[in-house]
Write a protein that binds this DNA or RNA. Structure first.
Length: 550
RNA sequence: GGCCCCUUGGUCAAGCGGUCAAGACAUCGCCCUUUCACGGCGGUAACACGAGUUCGAUUCUCGUAGGGGUCACCA
């Protein structure tokens, strides 16, 4: 077989050579040890938490080493093309603050290894395709979809391994005349790799996360170019990561099974393969107690979900880091205010197994993150969120910025800041009572007390509330009022002999709280009342007193 | 089915041949406290199973089981 002739037949318009491309896309000039990594998602319409896990790993690895991180869009699947997906992708990654040094952007490309969209790189792939054909390492296959299905069925029947290999590889060794004839008839074809591997052979390979991995050689003649001339993931991966001079590939471990093929491909092309970090899958609890993999359709795994819920980006980051690097939490405790970039991230600390996504933990992390923010920061992020997801609430929040800020300031700062909410979408429930439109009685008063007494106390307090009072005076007033109705003002005494009292000042505070906020749980009452103002406080106290005895 | 990866409490996870097997989240109890929170202290709770190597295995090896992945002109 004259492979050279075949390659001209298949790729007549390709004139460039692999050598030309080496010159066009030269090696990077980086310091020793600098890692070049990338995020290479396919634009499916939404970004997955897994993408962020992978992206964050790449980002830390490259930037921490003084290297480069770039974004490459893997849009080689025309059938699954989703309109606007690339924009969504770039926007989402931007929201999550991943800083790319080069790669695909909204309006094009940034960087000398462009284009960074695979759909625009066909001519580059074809150079290598032609080269492989001319060397006898790849060949055209004219099998129809139906023929392939029949092959699969036959293999199933024979209990043979699946795939296009060995005797099943119909077009692997057809004479050139036949190929020319098919070509002449304009029949569609794909380019297949001529594998020389055997499943009898094992190869050892070191993954940066999994460690020593023993895999079986690939013997399948995988498709390199689809019939539309666009490469498959495998071929594009080898060509692009070589030309873009990627040193480290971070990806999910679902790729582990095709790794032998990738290694084979790099060798066939004369490329040095990158180092690989295969991350275990992120799983989720499914139903009862069974664990299941994170599927593309789990809405809570889509990044847009976290944005809509109102998780601060920083919280999602912190959570992912705690999952990725087990020592991150310890570090965070030791450095509560340091920027995450100061944490020494290491792939050595990464768990080779997959992990279950822990929503409760994320919430906890988020509460901590929010509790450390200033009121101004909370205002900024909460209003940003509300503007997009709850316009009415947004208007309330921004109507009087100073007032809103003072609400956010309650219990903030100091060593033990409050941790009331984990996401912005909970904010309305937490502080809604500050706005008349959202104020309503949510909770019931304690059953132990006579409602008439409660009403009496509440009404009486309405007459005594003086916003000018200092906090201790304010509280003394409440204590005195309670004592009048035999509610203990000294908690220790009350606890020692509860039977001597109708209740404690804690209960009295509870009555007032419920009247003013509509809830049994709220931030500091003194602050709440002073922000609401005398008029509003008195009004709510009185209407509550009336309401409760109806 | 073939091939591959994984397996410490409910969850995330330390642990690299000798530990009373960390810590965090969740949960429960107590304390602090004017409420609500925060916080503090403490409790329940784990090395999947079976062989082997070894004086000694959670740590090493091999099986078994379980979980997961992959076998496309998807990535």
């Amino acid at each position: 077989m004259d492979y050279k002739y075949l390659s001209e037949l298949l790729f007549p318009s390709v004139t460039k050579t692999a050598e030309d491309l080496e010159v066009e896309f030269p090696a990077r000039n980086l310091k020793e040890g600098a890692i070049v990594s990338r995020m290479a998602p396919s634009p499916t319409g939404f970004v997955h938490l897994g993408n962020l896990v992978q992206g964050l790993t790449s980002e830390r690895l490259s930037h921490q080493s003084g290297g480069v991180l770039f974004l490459r869009v893997e849009d080689t699947d025309r059938k699954r093309e989703v309109k606007g997906a690339v924009e969504t992708l770039i926007e989402t990654l931007k929201h999550y603050g991943i800083q790319f040094d080069e790669g695909a952007t909204m309006d094009g490309d940034n960087g000398i290894y462009a284009p960074y969209r695979q759909s625009q790189r066909a001519s580059i792939y074809h150079v290598y395709a032609k080269k492989l054909v001319s060397e006898g390492q790849a060949y055209p296959c004219f099998c129809t979809e139906q023929e392939l299905e029949e092959m699969h069925a036959a293999q199933e029947k024979e209990c043979a391994n699946f795939g296009y290999f060995g005797k099943w590889a119909k077009w692997r060794d057809r004479p050139i005349e036949e190929i020319e004839q098919m070509l002449g008839e304009g029949k569609p074809w794909v380019l297949r790799f001529r594998s020389t591997g055997s499943i009898e052979n094992k190869i050892k390979f070191t993954d940066l996360i999994k460690g020593e991995v023993e895999v079986t050689e690939n013997d399948i003649d995988h498709v390199l170019l689809k019939s539309d001339g666009i490469p498959t993931y495998h071929f594009a991966h080898a060509v692009d990561d070589h030309l873009m001079r990627t040193t480290h590939v971070v990806r999910g471990d679902e790729w582990l099974s095709t790794l032998p093929f990738h290694l084979q491909l790099f060798r066939a092309l004369g490329f040095k393969p990158p180092k690989y970090c295969h991350i275990g899958p992120l799983m989720k609890m499914d139903g009862t107690s069974k664990r299941k993999l994170s599927k593309r359709k789990d809405p809570e795994l889509a990044l847009t979900y976290y944005k809509a819920e109102g998780f601060p980006v920083e919280a999602v980051y912190e959570y992912i880091l705690t999952v990725l690097n087990s020592n991150f939490e310890d570090w965070r405790r030791a450095n509560p205010n340091a920027h995450t970039d100061e944490f020494k991230f290491s792939y050595k600390k990464m768990n080779p197994a997959g992990s279950l996504f822990d929503a409760a933990k994320l919430r906890d992390v988020s509460k901590n993150v929010i509790s450390k923010m200033t009121a101004e920061k909370v205002y900024e992020l909460a209003t940003e969120w509300a503007k997009e997801f709850d316009v009415d609430f947004y208007e309330k929040l921004t109507a009087d910025m100073q007032r809103t800020l003072s609400i956010f300031a309650i219990g903030r700062g100091g060593n033990k800041p409050r941790k009331d909410y984990a996401v912005w979408s909970e904010l309305k429930e937490y502080m809604g009572f500050f706005f008349d439109d959202y104020f309503k009685l949510c909770d019931q008063p304690d059953e132990r007390f006579d409602r008439a007494v409660i009403a009496k106390i509440v009404r009486e307090y309405a007459d005594m509330y003086n916003p000018e009072d200092e906090q201790n005076v304010w509280f003394d007033t409440i204590k005195a009022l309670g004592e009048k109705y035999n509610f203990a003002s000294n908690m220790k005494e009350y606890k020692a002999n509860p039977e001597n009292y109708a209740g404690s000042v804690a209960d009295v505070s509870g009555f007032l709280r419920l009247a003013v906020t509509g809830k049994n749980s709220s931030p500091d009452m003194y602050a709440v009342m002073s922000i609401l103002g005398k008029e509003k406080v008195v009004e709510r106290l009185n209407s509550y007193a009336a309401e409760i005895v109806k």
